[in-house]
Simulated scan of single mutants.
Amino acid sequence: MTGIIAVTPRALSQGGHRALAALEAAGYEILFPTPGRQPTREEQLRFLPTCVGYLAGVEPISREVLTTARGLKVISRNGVGTDAIDLDAAAEFGIAVETAAGANAQGVAELAVTLMLAGLRQVPTQDATLKAGRWQRLEGREVAGRILGVIGCGQIGRRVARLGLGLGMSVRAFDAVPDPSFAPAGDFSFTTLEDLLAQADVVTLHCPPAARPVIDKEALTTVKPGAYLINTARSALVDDEAVRQALADGTLAGYATDVFGQEPPDPRELHRHPRVTMTPHIGGYTKESVERATRAAVENLLRVLSARP
């Protein structure tokens, strides 16, 4: 046996995946320490010291945990985010951190557009009232001719922009480092964050977290009244209380989120709001995205481990 590799993403840890067979073929033992759920810190402290590789999900990986995992050579995420990993500690201990760049981009982009369409037509509310025995028709809004604001124009944001343009929308994008080579056909342009918030009928987040939320009380004072907000990126990008207040005073027409600071989330007043739509972190949870991400994560594990003594 070459070593043990822990596999914890919920999409893999219960039913496995055929791509994992490449790890076994290379002589590694696969460990599923917490089938179907994220591991806790205490569980990580128990299983990681025995591992050389870690195919990780979105769970936090702290310095404390990495300090005990002295045989660990590589953490390979089946997604793109690394904000849950203590990267300084990983670098200090010589642990490589790899991501499956772009593997889930299409799935997340499609979910963002799905949430936009469902929100503007008030589908979740009307579904719930009809199932409760009430015939209640709520007027919706069409997206054609409206402005879509995309904050973060990487692989996911670009796909969302193209999908929006395909629906007849104008697209305004903000990125910390805008790429002038991205110029899709249609009414598309890069702009400032302030101008985007002031113009957009729909604002969708596709950027990494920063020191403070992108959508906070101050940002919401500049938002176009009646805008719809979508977050399929990171929960830290949004100040929940500021969004709740913006829904209450009509600044926002609705909010949809696929991401939470804790999974499952603690019940909050915001989450119970009738104009809030939630999905349980399913952006990259499609058959196609799981396939791409798993294969990329496995290839990264084998590449890094094969380069080590």
Rank of each mutant, 00 (worst) to 15 (best):
L12M: 11
E194G: 09
S189V: 10
T68S: 13
L45E: 11
A296Q: 14
G168L: 03
A56V: 05
L72W: 00
T8A: 03
K287L: 12
I95Y: 00
D266K: 15
L220K: 07
L12A: 01
S289A: 15
G16V: 11
D83A: 00
A21H: 08
V298C: 06
A242W: 04
P49V: 00
S13W: 00
P274D: 04
P9Y: 02
E64I: 03
E241M: 11
L55P: 03
A96T: 10
Q38I: 14
A253D: 13
A128T: 13
T50C: 12
R212V: 13
P180E: 09
E139L: 15
Q245S: 12
A233L: 02
L148E: 04
V202E: 08
P180L: 05
V214K: 04
A132K: 14
D201E: 07
A103E: 05
A25Q: 15
A103G: 11
L20E: 02
T129L: 15
A56I: 07
F188P: 11
L45G: 05
P35T: 09
Q262W: 08
R146G: 04
T294G: 06
G283S: 06
S235P: 08
T82N: 10
E92I: 03
V243S: 07
E92T: 15
V223I: 14
A173R: 01
A56W: 01
H17E: 00
D249I: 06
T67L: 13
A21D: 14
Q38Y: 13
A256Y: 07
T257P: 00
R295P: 06
L197M: 12
V65P: 10
Q14N: 09
V74N: 05
P184I: 01
G140F: 03
Q38S: 15
V123I: 12
T40R: 10
E263K: 07
G53N: 02
G53H: 07
A132Y: 06
K287T: 15
S62T: 15
L196P: 07
T257D: 01
G119P: 06
E42A: 15
D240E: 15
G254A: 04
E110Q: 13
L66W: 09
K287A: 13
V97N: 03
T279L: 05
R121S: 03
I85R: 06
L270E: 02
E110K: 11
A253S: 15
A25K: 15
P35A: 04
Y255G: 01
R292L: 12
V276T: 04
L148W: 01
G250I: 06
A96I: 09
D240A: 15
Q106A: 13
T125M: 14
L23E: 05
K217A: 15
G15C: 11
P49N: 05
G107Q: 00
K131V: 08
R158T: 08
V143A: 12
H17A: 03
Q155C: 11
P35L: 04
S181D: 13
V7R: 03
